[in-house]
Design a protein around this nucleic acid. Sequence first.
DNA 1: AATATAGCGTGTATATTTTACACTAAGTAA
DNA 2: TTACTTAGTGTAAAATATACACGCTATATT
Lengths: 229, 229
Amino acid sequence: MIEVLPKFDSTFSIDCVVFGFDEGELKILLIERNEEPFKDWWALPGNIVGEGESLDQSAARILNELTGLSNIYMEQYYTFGDVNRHPQGRVVSIAYYALLRLGGEKAVKPISTYAKQAYWRNVKDLPKLAFDHQQIFEKGLEKIKRRIKHQPIAFELLPEKFTLTQLQNVYEVILNKKLDKRNFRKKMLSFGVLKDLDEKQQGVSFRAATLYKFDKRRYAKLFGKEISF
Amino acid sequence: MIEVLPKFDSTFSIDCVVFGFDEGELKILLIERNEEPFKDWWALPGNIVGEGESLDQSAARILNELTGLSNIYMEQYYTFGDVNRHPQGRVVSIAYYALLRLGGEKAVKPISTYAKQAYWRNVKDLPKLAFDHQQIFEKGLEKIKRRIKHQPIAFELLPEKFTLTQLQNVYEVILNKKLDKRNFRKKMLSFGVLKDLDEKQQGVSFRAATLYKFDKRRYAKLFGKEISF
DNA sequence: AATATAGCGTGTATATTTTACACTAAGTAA
DNA sequence: TTACTTAGTGTAAAATATACACGCTATATT
């Protein structure tokens, strides 16, 4: 490798806004920092990008270290590069959002050195965040608000089998407004990408709802990559 | 500044997809490289981010050096970080698109060291590009295709005073499809953000069209930041 | 002066999509 | 058996999107 690139004290990191949906609430994963700067503050999970890692790989690794999970749905959405966003030097941070299914077990691995513990926090009740993480979070939330209208990302927040009411809840909590039940169902079913599983919800103390799953194959066939939910 | 950040041979750069609209064609600005690697290749204008610069500042500087213009409309849209995208080391590149008015004078400054000259090229007829710039361009084009449907960015490509036909041309060339004239006008005018200037086009050899301008103030009042063009 | 040319500017009818709205059905628990 | 809770369903009205063609006007040409 020829050494001709100018260099200075700088590096890049990834920060992740990890969304989860649970009991009707939209939550994100926060860590309590165990290191300076911002020791003991709440922060978004993040880390320095490794030498041999692409950005996507790095984001996946960070999330895996934190949760033990892999194959999580993630998308890069913005890069934050203000000169003084990190008190110790020039750190440009590439932000990702992740969407994951909280299937009952909300267990998150306690983690290594830089964080004491990770917790799920309702997005409507966040503590003060380290660095410019408040801004990163807000932009991430905006992003999924916009994207949920055109792409099938809501399903990433639900278990494989879900009811229409659960799906509607996801939309309502992300868009932050009530939707009409009949209109929602009519429209959602009209896309033809939900597969009726002929199966009912289990263990509820009222009339059980029909379970559906998202038919990825059919979605890909019908729409290249675009839809209007 | 405390020295605790891990470091390795890496840096970040900005690459710009500079769109211009001229004689019914959508063009971008390409440079012919004067330096290794990819000497003599065509490439997107770009440069290393300076120590004291935010990303937005850096993007604005690069464009200014290239065109002599400032206050250009620019938006960051994606960050490219594959490990081997740059043959000489790890360079993460933050991509911006810029939109600018080619008001007749398409003159672009001949430029300094790293490029011989900059040229406007029709997006439908691009040469092979250096690095991963083809990919960066494609993603940028996709981005404005999407954004033109919801945000008033078309006006950035037109002179202050423009005709409805010119505006329609911008939409057609970006969306890459014909639009119905009457429907386009009806809808566009219905938003109430175009100001009829009571003025006609000059110097055309046929019936002159009415000139309009985009009423930013009114737009901001009516729509926070959103619309559906 | 007459004519040709080229793009300007306009309206209506139909189809599609979106919205608003309330009750019965089914299952569980007491 | 009754009370409770959520599931599941249809229609009419309004708004929006689409399809479609011709006379007008300024200039250029002869």
